[in-house]
Amino acid sequence: MKRLYFALGIFVIIFAVIFCGTMEIEKAHSDMKTSFSSLQKSVEKGESEKAEALAEKLESKWVDYEKKLSLFVNHAEVCEIGVAVSTIKPLIKAKQFGDVLAEIKKAQTLLCHLVNIENIKN
């Protein structure tokens, strides 16, 4: 009977960690996706000041997510997105909008990859 309780306890821990991890990834994905698309729109319109502010907001948002996501997924993949996000603001300042769009696309792809790794359908 004692072992049954241990088994139940372990099952609850596993389920809780998987649930929290999946929810956190999904939350980060949908939140970052919205931020990326609004940033992309302002870059495409050439609104550099607005884009700069959005990039700064995006970066600080990602720093928060990075800490949480590192508990559940490979640090290298999370770090790669962080690098892509951190290069956006300097590129906007340098008015290299083509490179900014490329970095946004790169970060979006990496984020999708992160979601796909944890997707049971794959």
Partner: peptide
């Protein structure tokens, strides 16, 4: 690698 990946894998085996 996150510690949780190792811990969860171990817990699954124990379960």
């Amino acid at each position: 690698r996150p510690v949780s990946s190792g811990v969860i894998a171990i817990l699954v085996l124990v379960l």
